[in-house]
Computed example of a mutant assay.
Amino acid sequence: MTIAPSFRIDPTEFSGKRVFVTGGTKGAGAAIMRRLKAAGAQTATSARNAPESAEDADLVIRADLATPDGVAAAADAVTARFGTLDILIHCLGGSSTPGGGFTAATEAFWQQELNLNLLAAVRLDRLLAPPMIERGTGVILHVASIQRRLPLHESTIAYAAAKAALASYSKSLSKELGPKGVRVNTVSPGWIMTTAAEHMVQRLAESGGTDEATARQGIMAALGGIPIGRPAWPEEVAELVAFLASDRAASIHGAEYVIDGGTIPTV
């Protein structure tokens, strides 16, 4: 396996920018936090169980964004600290539905996946986007997944459906907010080399009565393979997000950017 890449960063690119990254304490979200803070941004994130130390954030909010109350508390805390945001990045997401196909995805799992992967973003946008609209400037990025196009029916059927809805919602939002000065785009990663991804491998191995290597190969096979031969590093996803959030992407709006190593086999 190759070593995680490092990139040259302009330490002033996001100076003065106020950024809220959901799911920014681990995985790709944490990499996004590090990247933007290194470029001068003021950063905030949230977690259900906020870590005692989060050096990549100026503000860590303890809140469960899968609930309306948690979203409201996070929005209040961000507004109290930063006022109007410049950049809002929805990186929160994940799947806890066990393997076993559609019958294993009970009502409770469906509601859980929708709350986490779709409704958290919808609710937070509703609270934090209006001040951006009033100022006539801002950036909103939704992190979806290539599973919206390549769902894994064995284990992530509800997650994939929620991410498909998130991508559709993001496109709809872009049509409304673009004329008001707020750019909206979607980033859809493939398999990312994160702790959460490894936990999914472990769950599949346990539910299938096999080992992790076999489960990992099963995921690769279900995806149709990854032409570059590996998952993406979180730092690579963070570079794409940083570009789309920056003024360098000022005319990019209502678009979806896939970062999957070539996994999706169609144009």
Rank of each mutant, 00 (worst) to 15 (best):
P5Q: 10
P5G: 07
S6R: 10
F14C: 09
F14R: 01
T22M: 07
T25H: 08
K26M: 06
A31Q: 11
A31M: 06
I32G: 02
R34L: 11
R35V: 15
R35S: 03
A41C: 04
T43L: 13
A44R: 03
S46T: 12
R48M: 12
R48H: 13
N49Y: 12
A54D: 09
E55W: 00
L59H: 10
V60M: 14
I61K: 01
I61V: 13
I61E: 04
R62V: 13
A63I: 11
A66Y: 08
A66S: 13
T67D: 12
T67C: 05
P68V: 12
D69R: 14
G70T: 04
A73M: 13
A73W: 03
A77N: 03
A77C: 06
R81K: 15
R81D: 09
T84N: 06
L85Y: 03
L85F: 12
I87R: 03
C91P: 05
L92D: 07
G94H: 07
S95M: 07
S95G: 01
S96G: 15
G99Y: 01
G100V: 07
G101Y: 04
T103A: 15
A104F: 00
A104E: 07
A105S: 14
A105T: 13
A108G: 11
A108E: 14
F109D: 05
L114I: 12
N115K: 05
L116A: 09
N117L: 06
L118A: 08
L118S: 00
L119S: 06
A121I: 04
V122Y: 02
R123F: 14
L124T: 08
L124Y: 06
D125W: 08
D125Y: 06
L127I: 15
A129V: 15
A129H: 04
P130A: 14
P130H: 07
M132P: 01
I133N: 06
G136D: 13
G136T: 05
L141A: 01
L141K: 10
I146S: 01
R149P: 12
R149W: 15
L150A: 15
P151V: 14
L152P: 02
E154T: 09
S155P: 11
I157Y: 10
A158P: 03
Y159S: 07
A160W: 01
A160I: 00
A161V: 07
A161I: 00
A162D: 05
K163Q: 00
A167I: 15
S172L: 14
K175C: 10
L177P: 01
L177D: 09
G178S: 09
G178M: 01
P179M: 11
K180L: 12
G181S: 14
V182S: 09
V182F: 08
R183I: 07
R183Y: 02
P189K: 00
G190Y: 04
W191Y: 09
M193N: 11
E198H: 01
H199V: 11
H199F: 03
Q202T: 04
R203F: 00
A205P: 01
T210E: 03
A213T: 12
T214V: 05
T214M: 06
A215G: 06
G218T: 00
I219G: 02
A222P: 03
L223S: 07
G224L: 05
G225W: 08
I228M: 11
G229K: 05
W233L: 07
E236Y: 01
V237E: 02
A238G: 06
V241G: 04
L244M: 07
A245G: 13
R248I: 08
A249V: 11
Y257I: 11
V258Y: 09
V258I: 15
G262Y: 02
V267C: 10
